[in-house]
Write a protein that binds this DNA or RNA. Structure first.
Lengths: 335, 335
DNA sequence: CTGTTAGCGCTTTCAT
DNA sequence: ATGAAAGCGCTAACAG
């Protein structure tokens, strides 16, 4: 491997001079600068950023910890993060927690040992508290993405889950639905709680009685089995509409209904949080509360980098991104 | 920051002993091992992998360079790569080239300087040759994903583009189509050339004359504008079916046709390479040649890690993954 | 079973 | 404008 010493020797200068040329720092005569640069090119020299990281105590690397790159929301968020990171001179390390605290812990350990400069953290749930405190103890800045964690103060970029849910359910009510089910993520996740509240408020606002049998908690992951919906469908008075708390749930529900020959929206209306990426371009079908996923990633990265560079330790900023109701074909007027 | 020396001092041992405990190497008495471990816990010690990388000359990091995480094919591939990397003890650095050689070059420079142990490389095209040679010069192992590059010998994981295209076009022909358009990616990409060949062979096999006016090259990225299809649609004898060389193109085409009130499949049949992730779960609509994207990533990572660990320099392996024709609603019997 | 020494490739600091 | 020395945190190699 070629080092600054190899360059230095050939150029008859010290390693320090080479370092200065690389970093464009300090006063160097144009002549030696040119000479050094020429030799670097000839030898195909590439600075070793590991060595630099060790002395500078910074890696110029950010970690992006999400639950699943396969979910269009996180995919697009990741794209935003990547673009911003690249622009700001940072690399991005990718991790998938699968909504699983054990896996999340593994990544946190890696993050700690890798000495990344900061973390973009979409927590698996309230149980992520330990992990985040662990980051704090080690003074690794992070910004929370999409989900809050009680007990943690930090920069964050979140959506308007309650308001979005209220809108979505309000939309269903306006269409004449009164038996509206909520299929939710785990209540250990802040967005699931907020979406529940939005659901509840929308019912109340419209004098529709709340029926707890219409609320299911299935987790934000892809449905495993069509039968998971049976408790809802076999109700004496089954719902005429389902509000799914995220896109994965909605897709699973639509597929499950299809397998049971229940047509959407003819027999059941469906609306959900988060848009579907390509799916909605191909066929604008699902009614959704669309969140600006790219902005979550892009702005989150900007916040993080500012935090890193200013080394502040409080003055937390919270960016709240609105969601947009997009009414499409999966919800229909009742009666 | 806490170092092995801090631990060593408190435990009344040398730094080397601490290092041995961390790495579980060398014979150490259970007693001192326990003592050291206890102190590490008390002090919340985390090994600094930057320092380790510097001396061991390995970073335990792989780079995944794809064209766009936002494409379900690459998203799923990334997921496979991540899972395999994690399992094998490697981290994953993510990069998006956007089918753009300039951006790709930037990432290659980062890769070089980051001293990753290997690269999972989905090249932007034949012009990636320089970049790959640059990796070779620096002895960074890589495996080519999805696309080959003339002039480069290496491990690779690719699909059966020609065969898949032949099947897809054969399927259209069986349905009675004779005017079949091909909307392709750039011919500087191996898969686009192979898909063209498959298209051509299928026509020939069925005695359908090849009409070059039915072939368009639009690039594998998302369509910008519905009017890009006009040359095809305004033909004297327009096509009755379109074979799109990838999923992004197909979605763009469907959307463009929708905006022109051309119904699929009633007025136009569409089939494409690569499945659509969630979109196909939600609504199994597009007829596709589905590639096992997850396997591309997973197996590619396994190949790469084997290559890294064995330090071989030839004996290239090529994994060829079949695609599966999934006939859905976007293609219909003619006449 | 444990310790000492040297050095990975770079930058910081202090000289000149 | 340039250089020498020291050290970032760790491990390889050798010694005992």
């Amino acid at each position: 491997m070629i080092t600054i010493y190899d360059i230095a020797k050939r150029a008859n200068v010290s390693a320090m001079t080479v370092s200065r040329v690389i970093n464009n720092s300090g006063r160097i005569s144009e002549k030696t600068k040119a000479k050094v640069k020429k030799i670097m090119e000839e030898l195909n020299y590439v600075p070793n950023s590991t060595a630099r990281s060790l002395v500078k105590q910074e890696t110029k690397t950010l970690s992006l910890l999400i639950t699943d790159v396969t979910n269009p929301f996180y995919t697009t968020l990741a794209r935003g993060a990547e673009d911003a990171a690249m622009q700001l001179g940072y690399k991005l390390l990718l991790g998938n927690s699968d909504e699983n605290l054990v896996k999340e812990k593994e990544y946190v350990d890696i993050i700690l040992s890798t000495r990344v400069d900061g973390v973009l953290f979409a927590p698996a749930g309230d149980g992520s508290l330990d992990h985040l405190q662990s980051l704090q103890r080690h003074r690794i800045p992070f910004v929370l993405l999409d989900r809050e964690v009680p007990g943690i103060e930090s920069d964050m970029v979140v959506g308007e889950s309650k308001e979005g849910a209220r809108q979505l359910v309000g939309h269903l009510i306006k269409l004449g639905h009164k038996r509206i089910a909520l299929v939710n993520g785990s209540s250990t996740i802040s967005t699931a709680r907020q979406r529940f509240t939005g659901y509840w408020e929308a019912l109340k606002l419209n004098d529709i009685p709340f029926d707890e049998r219409l609320v299911m908690e299935l987790g934000y992951k892809q449905l495993e089995d069509a039968s998971q919906l049976d408790p809802l469908l076999q109700l004496e008075a089954p719902p005429t509409a389902i509000f799914a708390a995220n896109n994965f749930l909605a897709v699973g529900i639509v597929a499950a209904l299809r397998s049971k020959r229940i047509r959407v929206p003819d027999h059941m209306s469906i609306a959900c949080f988060d848009d579907l990426g390509l799916a909605s371009l191909l066929n604008p079908f699902l009614t959704v509360a669309s969140q600006p996923a790219y902005q979550f990633g892009f702005l989150g990265t900007q916040l993080l980098v500012e935090r890193i560079q200013q080394k502040l330790d409080s003055n937390w900023r919270k960016i709240i991104l609105p969601s947009e109701l997009i009414a499409r074909e999966s919800t229909r007027q009742l009666g």
